[in-house]
């Protein structure tokens, strides 16, 4: 068996002598409670890693070494295992991003329906290139691989929402809406 129990319930975790105390400062009480809930849902605790980093990412918008430490502190899962898993996935940015993460699909079905032009249009509207964030920290622009919205191409995801059958007019309207909320 490859996977093993990372924590034997009832036994306190043994800390290396002199290892520094980690205080949970970045994650808020709500996230901590949610992570604690996830910890006990699975046959082995290690399965809670992905749910835990998902919770952290939802609160913070990106992950960092400090966050891995805190998750480790809460879950008693070795920090190396957390970092190992987190670094594999694209859904968790590893550096701060704008308030709205705009991910435009540029895979095949969307590309056939003008995704590249849509990305150029967004670059022009936002005054940034893909991979960059606007100066007001409102928008980060990126490209995504197929998001399973192919029959309504071109499409994009902005934070947790899909926007499909994009046209320049639709993009204009959405950007106006998001800006006016500030």
């Amino acid at each position: 068996m490859k996977t093993q129990l990372t924590h034997i319930p009832g036994k306190p975790r043994i800390k290396a002598p002199g290892a520094p105390e980690v205080r949970v400062k970045i994650l808020n009480a709500e996230s901590v409670a949610e992570i604690q809930k996830q910890m006990v849902r699975f046959p082995i605790r290690r399965s809670a890693i992905l749910p835990a980093i998902t919770v952290a990412n939802r609160q913070l918008g990106y992950l960092s070494a400090e966050v891995y430490e805190e998750i480790s502190e809460i879950t008693e899962i070795p920090v190396s295992q957390i970092a190992e898993a987190a670094s594999f996935y694209t859904l968790f940015p590893k550096k701060p991003r704008g308030k709205y993460l705009i991910m435009v699909c540029d895979n095949i079905s969307c590309a056939l329906c003008g995704a590249d032009a849509m990305i150029k249009y967004l670059e022009m509207k936002l005054g940034i290139k893909r991979g960059e964030t606007t100066e007001d920290n409102l928008f980060t622009l990126g490209t995504a691989e197929c998001l399973a919205g192919c029959s309504a191409a071109p499409m994009m995801q902005v934070n947790d929402r899909y926007y499909e059958n994009l046209t320049p007019a639709k993009v204009d309207k959405l950007l106006e809406e998001l800006k006016s909320k500030e």
Binding site: K2, R46, S47, I49, E84, A85, Y89, F92
Partner: peptide, 24 residues
């Protein structure tokens, strides 16, 4: 269980590894 954005996690052995908390 929600994934982390990786096509390969649709492949069954990668999916299983991902669900077990390892790299997918």
């Amino acid at each position: 269980y929600t994934g982390g954005g990786a096509y390969i996690c649709g492949e069954e052995t990668a999916l299983i590894n991902s669900l077990a908390g390892e790299r997918g």
